[in-house]
């Protein structure tokens, strides 16, 4: 919702095709590609108009941009999948690079820390974009994680198939977050937030996990 509001405030008309469901990454990553293709095809069919497609989650964006064309390799649908992929942007990338937003911070002084999602970083190549947006906020201090680029251990079904290793990874990430002293962890990916936030809550930490879009909206809109 905050993502939609941020775009609307820049004067954009936002369209949300109601038939959309899932980018199909879970089935794709598990090797169930027929199932993934069926779901991906249904999504692509909903976004036929030539508008940019803005996705508020790095790994979903990575799935659509990087893997949709491969998924339809040798299929007559490939061309359409490629055209779709070319229009995909991750939200912070779109705000920073395409809209080149200029914002004023309306919030109190706060310290936050930032966790980039692996797929945002390595599939979408997004590293500086969210940091540039946060840097526009005068009262926000970003305290970097010691191991910023290390995976939080979510990995979709990985967290369920390998709960022990996933647990060890999220524990380390949670400790890293806590040691920054920031009361707020920001990320651009729902999976990471669910994972790290879930562990922070179970530990009873005072740190909250929040999507960067919601934070940006609240800071720049004065709530």
């Amino acid at each position: 919702m905050s993502g939609i509001r941020l775009l609307q405030r820049e004067g954009l008309r936002v369209v949300f095709p109601r038939g959309q469901t899932c980018c199909a990454q879970p089935a794709y990553n598990c090797g169930y590609h027929d199932e993934a293709r069926a779901v991906a095809r249904a999504q692509i069919a909903l976004f036929r108009k030539p508008h940019p497609i803005v996705v508020p989650s790095g790994s979903c964006a990575g799935m659509m941009k990087r893997h949709y064309p491969a998924l339809f390799e040798g299929d007559p649908f490939r061309e359409e999948a490629e055209a779709f992929a070319a229009r995909v942007f991750e939200l912070t990338q779109f705000l920073s690079d395409v809209l080149e937003v200029k914002w004023t911070d309306r919030g109190e002084k706060v310290r936050v820390t930032w966790h980039p999602s692996c797929h945002s970083l390595r599939e979408m190549g997004i590293d500086e974009e969210p940091k540039k947006l946060l840097a526009q906020l005068a009262n926000v201090e970003v305290a970097p994680l010691a191991r910023e680029r290390e995976c939080c251990g979510f990995g979709g079904t990985f967290a369920v198939r390998e709960p022990e290793i996933s647990a060890a990874m999220v524990e380390d990430k949670a400790s890293d977050v806590v040691s920054t002293g920031a009361p707020l962890l920001l990320s651009g990916d729902g999976g990471c937030l669910l994972n790290i936030g879930g562990r922070l809550a179970a530990r009873g930490e005072r740190v909250r996990a929040q999507h960067i879009a919601q934070f940006l909206w609240e800071r720049t809109n004065g709530r």
């Binding site: 967290a159 369920v160 879930g198 809550a201």
Partner: peptide, 25 residues
């Protein structure tokens, strides 16, 4: 598997569940 409750928790490193009841909320 997500919360670390019941049988799934058995393989978890003990220090993770010593101080917290669940692995994740």
């Amino acid at each position: 598997a997500w919360t670390g409750e019941s049988g799934q928790a058995q393989g978890l490193p003990p220090e993770l569940l010593k101080t917290t009841r669940r692995l994740r909320e």
